[in-house]
Simulated assay, not measured.
Amino acid sequence: MYIAVMTVRISLPGCASLKEKRQRMGGLHERYGRNPAVAVCESGEHDRLEASEWTFVVVGNERPKVESLCSEIEDKLQRTVDGRVMEVSRELL
């Protein structure tokens, strides 16, 4: 079994309220949490309106599938989040 932990830091320039921050992040829990191989949570930057940090834990039986799913999540984030992905770090356990 392979486990990948991927942390994504996102910049939200001009974000003025917590409500706007939630809207701009667009329901990451609902989108990615539906997949039984993925767990997702907001892991940092709770107090900052102009930044957000999310951690994804991806589990699978084959390393290429886990890495592929991580890449897919990263690509979708780049396209769908109303912000700018500043940093992505991955760790394979």
Rank of each mutant, 00 (worst) to 15 (best):
D75C: 03
S11A: 15
R24F: 04
E45G: 01
G44A: 06
Q23G: 05
C15D: 08
G60M: 10
R34E: 15
I73E: 12
S89F: 01
V81L: 01
V38T: 04
E87S: 08
V85M: 03
N35T: 06
A39W: 07
K65P: 00
E50H: 04
A4T: 08
E72R: 11
I73D: 13
P36W: 11
G26S: 15
S89H: 10
S11D: 14
V40I: 15
K76F: 01
V85Y: 04
H46L: 13
Y32W: 14
E50N: 11
R22T: 02
V57R: 12
G33I: 13
V8T: 09
G83H: 07
S89L: 06
M6F: 07
S17P: 09
P64Y: 09
L49M: 06
N35V: 01
S43R: 00
E53I: 00
F56L: 05
E67N: 13
S17W: 10
K76Y: 02
E30Y: 02
L69C: 07
V66Y: 12
A4V: 04
V88M: 04
V8R: 05
G60F: 08
S43Q: 01
V58N: 10
Y2D: 08
L77S: 07
R84Q: 13
V59E: 12
V40P: 06
E72W: 14
L77Y: 11
R48K: 10
L92Y: 15
G83D: 05
V57I: 15
M1V: 14
F56E: 06
S68V: 01
S17D: 09
L28P: 03
W54K: 00
E45V: 00
R34A: 14
V85W: 04
Q78C: 00
V81P: 04
R22L: 05
M25F: 02
E45N: 05
S17M: 06
E42A: 05
V5D: 03
R24C: 07
L93T: 06
M25N: 08
S11E: 14
V81F: 03
R48H: 05
L18I: 10
A37E: 14
C70R: 07
Q78T: 01
D47Q: 08
E72D: 14
E45A: 13
L18A: 12
V38S: 02
T55L: 03
P64I: 09
S68D: 15
C70K: 09
S71N: 13
A16H: 11
G27Y: 02
V85G: 03
T80D: 08
P64V: 05
R90E: 03
R90M: 05
G60D: 09
M1Y: 14
N61M: 10
T55F: 05
G44Y: 09
R63L: 15
L28A: 02
F56R: 07
V5Q: 00
A4Y: 06
P64N: 11
A39K: 09
V59Q: 12
I10R: 00
S11P: 00
T80E: 15
V81H: 00
P64G: 09
L92N: 08
K19R: 15
M6Q: 14
E91L: 09
R84M: 03
S71K: 12
R34N: 12
E67Q: 15
S68M: 11
E50C: 04
R24Y: 11
M25D: 02
L28H: 02
Y32Q: 02
V57S: 13
V57C: 14
G14Y: 08
V66P: 12
A39V: 11
G26M: 01
R24W: 09
E72K: 07
A37F: 04
V66F: 13
R34M: 10
E67M: 14
N35C: 10
S11N: 09
